[in-house]
Design a protein around this nucleic acid. Structure first.
Length: 197
DNA sequence: CATGGGATTGACT
DNA sequence: GTCAATCCCATGC
């Protein structure tokens, strides 16, 4: 299986966020299917890159297909995929996974048993996969954190479009994408009626 | 150099 | 439902 290349990420960030649903993230003996994402772009104030090029935001303005990992609330590492051409600050936040492989490793890292709780949130999935701050800027095609295309010939999942959560600015943008009815999506879960496609 | 604010989670009332 | 934990870094004095 060949990981997704830079060309996959070098297009409008909301488009990539939707396309990443169903793709697979793998690291260090564990992997999961992406069931929830959010898009961020330097043109809107909820995005870290809104402040322009700084030490913190440099990876966002770099080449697409790299990881942007940062610490949230002093506790959690959050994983993003950098998108759009160099010079544009944009990324997709990976918000939730359906555990696929390495479940026992995930349980050990999380200190939990229930499969639904292993990766159902952006801070949870990084802990379950063992993704840390030092992965910031790493290449998502070359690893150690890798992203693979949607598996097999199966139909694409039914995807809900809703507003992003946990932010205070630009809350109206419909840039949260999730698999309809999937139990691994983080809370609050979008209502089943919102933006179904 | 000091300060303030999070793209969250889990424990507790 | 409420709330604290805890650290990076952007900003302002």
């Amino acid at each position: 299986m060949t990981p997704l290349g830079a060309d996959f990420y070098e297009r409008p960030v909301a488009e990539v966020a939707r396309a990443l649903i169903g793709c697979v993230v793998a690291h260090e003996g564990a992997a999961g299917v992406i069931v929830e994402t959010e898009a961020y772009h330097d043109s809107e104030p909820a995005c870290h890159a809104y402040v322009g090029l700084t030490q913190r935001t440099a990876p966002l303005f770099g080449p697409p297909g790299r990881a942007y990992v940062y610490r949230s609330y002093g506790i959690h590492a959050l994983l993003n995929a950098v998108c759009e051409p160099p010079g544009v600050g944009a990324a997709v936040l990976i918000r939730a996974l359906a555990p696929l492989q390495g479940l026992e490793l995930m349980r050990a890292r999380r200190g939990l048993e229930r499969e639904e709780e292993l990766c159902s949130g952006p801070g949870k999935l990084t802990q379950a996969l063992g993704v840390e701050l030092h992965h910031n800027g790493s290449d998502l095609a070359r690893g150690p954190v890798r992203v693979y295309p949607r598996a097999g010939a199966g139909r694409s999942p039914s995807i809900l479009t809703s507003t992003r959560i946990g932010i205070t600015k630009a809350v109206e943008l419909p840039w949260r994408f999730s698999v309809a009815g999937d139990p691994h999506v983080s809370r609050p879960r979008p209502p089943a009626s919102v933006g179904r496609r």
